[in-house]
């Protein structure tokens, strides 16, 4: 049981960080960013290139992933999403644009980084073994704590910084925020950049533990959508809760249901359908959006 909980917490921390970026973009701009998974993969490949190819320290790789993905997010918002949002009142326009960006990034990743699985050398050696009750490699523990620290830093930033407060105001009521003098364009760009940066950071963190490959983008996006549906789309605390709930459900399912074949995700999806039928806004979302 201890191992199941430890696995669930570790998975939950990385999932929550993935979901945070997605829910931030959704809350600010009402954009379902289907390219979020591809941004995660891109961030992983940037860290890989900096660490494995250039031989620089892991932390430099993480910073490079954060900076490059933030820039990518800002450019995507200014030149792609902003014009579409201004010209089209239909939500599906931005959804199609996001899907297009996802395909584009897939192609760019293939061209720049190739088709192979990539990984960087272990950042910490050794395995924590508590009397065979919990077995967890040190690098995984470190990455888990780093993910939690990033989540705390993100919450603090949103809660206490001027930029964070402005973004929260935008998320709560865009028109009211605008009337109160919040520069909507500026903070939308910052929000998109921050969301993309979080995706890139998780990619950079995970490349040291599980590696990264071209095909991880789509499934990552799907999981991120599941998390924000569980927690409530556009709600920061909901994304964190959704991430930890999904991580725990996976951990429990993979251990307890393994004897019956791979039915873990079948059970998770079925549970999600039932849950959404009763609470479509998720755990912490509001029924009115």
């Amino acid at each position: 049981m201890e191992q199941i909980i430890a696995n669930g917490l570790y998975l939950g921390a990385q999932y929550a960080l993935i979901a945070l970026g997605l829910t931030l973009i959704f809350s600010l701009m009402n954009v379902l960013n289907f390219a979020h998974g591809q941004m995660f993969v891109f961030g992983g490949f940037v860290t890989y290139t900096v660490v494995a190819k250039a031989g620089l320290p892991f932390v430099v790789g993480l910073v490079a992933s954060a900076v490059i993905l933030a820039a990518m997010g800002a450019v995507a918002e200014v030149f792609l999403f902003r014009p579409v949002i201004k010209r089209s009142k239909r939500d599906e326009s931005t959804m199609l644009l996001a899907a297009g960006v996802a395909f584009f990034l897939d192609a760019v990743i293939l061209l720049l980084f190739g088709e192979k699985q990539r990984g960087v050398p272990k950042i910490l050696n050794g395995v924590f073994n508590w009397d065979m009750r919990i077995i967890m490699p040190y690098d995984r523990i470190f990455i888990g704590f780093l993910a939690v620290a990033l989540i705390v830093a993100f919450i603090a930033f949103m809660q206490y910084s001027r930029t964070g407060r402005a973004m929260r105001a935008l998320a709560q009521d865009r028109t009211a925020a605008q009337l109160m003098g919040v520069d909507v364009d500026r903070y939308s760009m910052i929000g998109f950049a921050l969301g993309a940066m979080l995706a890139g950071l998780v990619g950079g963190l995970l490349v040291a533990v599980t590696g990264i490959n071209l095909g991880m983008g789509g499934p990552t996006s799907v999981k991120a959508f599941m998390m924000i549906m569980i927690g409530g789309a556009g709600v920061i605390s909901g994304a964190i809760a959704g991430g930890f709930i999904l991580g725990m459900m996976e951990s429990v399912g993979l251990t307890l249901l393994s004897a019956y074949g791979d039915i873990t995700y079948l059970v998770i999806f079925a549970s999600l359908m039932v849950f959404l039928a009763f609470r479509p806004q998720g755990l912490m979302g509001k029924p009115w959006g």
């Binding site: 191992q3 199941i4 696995n7 570790y10 998975l11 990385q14 077995i135 967890m136 995984r140 995970l206 533990v209 599980t210 095909g215 991880m216 499934p219 990552t220 999981k223 996976e250 951990s251 993979l254 251990t255 791979d262 995700y265």
Partner: peptide, 10 residues
């Protein structure tokens, strides 16, 4: 396992 699994410990 799912092909997109990121943690194979469980």
């Amino acid at each position: 396992y799912q092909v997109d699994t990121t943690d194979f410990t469980p």
